[in-house]
Design a protein around this nucleic acid. Structure first.
Length: 322
DNA sequence: CGGCTTTGACCGGCGC
DNA sequence: GCGCCGGTCAAAGCCG
């Protein structure tokens, strides 16, 4: 395997973000997304969509087919090379929320590595193909390909490996991770029609950090109250309203715990989610941990990109706008 | 009883 | 071509 563990790249920004103190208190000491490295592993600062989008919102916002976000150093792939790490910015980058088809297209064009681009091309149907293929071939243990759908990862500082994100997951595997004393767990959304998967592993460098990788997008509403962990703050904003003329998915809450926590400074604000009409329905938030910018700045940016922008340093946004 | 976790085996991709 | 490794499957066991 190529020794390019996500952690390696994440580490740098991890530190930077560690100062953030998201509102996870029940079990999580602190949470913070590392949108930066993980997201732009690709090197294409401008080519990644926001994780929100990747989680499904993307489809809600963009008509174009799925793409990008194959950034994650293919955990599986020793084969996959680290994204053209050509320009891995020092600051968290690449989370761009292109809120227009045009932008999406541009992004697509920029899609980093050929491999990524290639896979991105048919990611959308990949999962289905995979499934049908597996069935076709007699179906078991077959459908394991590499890039399935858009993937994105983030790191959280948590005591628990599996963070509640509003969806129900079933663990289907666990493997030892090379160069790490911690195992990686594989989860799949319990919804039969939902092929979303996620991997959870602890950083070998910082055991307190949990790296969660999402793959695919939910095609169903969030159960909201998974496994009766009502005591745990769920950070899933209500499904966004059908955006700009395209509502591909019924509703997909964000399956990002930390992201959620970010979007919502405190669990209590969750319900504060407000649907917007033509703009990514993300609640404006200028006071989240990620905001280093001024409120005005954030506001300005959110006008075009929505809340996500709040998570992204101006530099990144800049590249996105370019 | 249903759903979930655990765990070992298997499969396919990729590097050498 | 071989071996390594990530990812997935599926049986068995556990729990509510």
């Amino acid at each position: 395997m190529t020794e390019k563990p996500e952690e390696e790249m994440e580490a740098s920004s991890t530190v930077a973000a560690s100062s953030i103190q998201p509102p996870f208190s029940s079990q999580t000491s602190s949470v913070f997304p590392f949108v930066g490295d993980l997201f732009d592993a690709d090197g294409g600062d401008t080519d990644s969509l926001g994780f929100l989008e990747l989680l499904g919102l993307r489809d809600l916002y963009h008509t174009p087919p799925p793409l990008l976000f194959d950034h994650l150093p293919p955990a599986a792939g020793r084969g996959a090379e680290p994204p053209d790490g050509g320009n891995i910015p020092a600051t968290p980058s690449s989370i761009s929320t292109s809120s227009s088809t045009e932008a999406a297209t541009a992004i697509r064009a920029l899609t980093t590595s050929p491999a990524a681009a290639a896979s991105a091309g048919d990611e959308g149907s990949e999962q289905q193909q995979k499934t049908s293929k597996a069935e076709e071939e007699g179906g078991k243990k077959k459908g394991q390909k590499r890039q399935k759908g858009p993937r994105f990862a983030f790191k959280t500082r948590s005591e628990v490996d599996h963070l509640e994100d509003g969806y129900r997951w079933r663990k289907y595997g666990q493997k030892a991770v090379k160069n790490s004393p911690y195992p990686r767990s594989y989860y799949r959304c319990t919804s039969a029609t939902c092929g979303v998967k996620k991997r959870v592993e602890r950083s070998s460098e910082d055991p307190a950090v949990v790296v969660t990788t999402y793959e695919g997008q939910h095609t169903h509403p969030s159960p909201i109250l998974p496994r009766g962990h009502a005591h745990q703050p769920l950070l899933i904003p209500p499904p966004p309203p059908p955006p700009i003329g395209l509502s591909v998915l019924p509703s997909m809450g964000l399956s990002l715990p930390i992201l959620g926590s970010y979007l919502h400074p405190s669990p209590a604000t969750l319900p504060d989610f407000r649907p917007a009409a033509a703009v990514p329905p993300l609640p404006p938030l200028t006071h989240n941990a990620f905001s280093n910018r001024t409120a005005a700045e954030a506001e300005a940016s959110s006008r075009d990109h929505g809340l996500l922008q709040d998570l992204i340093p101006s530099e990144i946004r800049k590249s996105d706008e370019l």
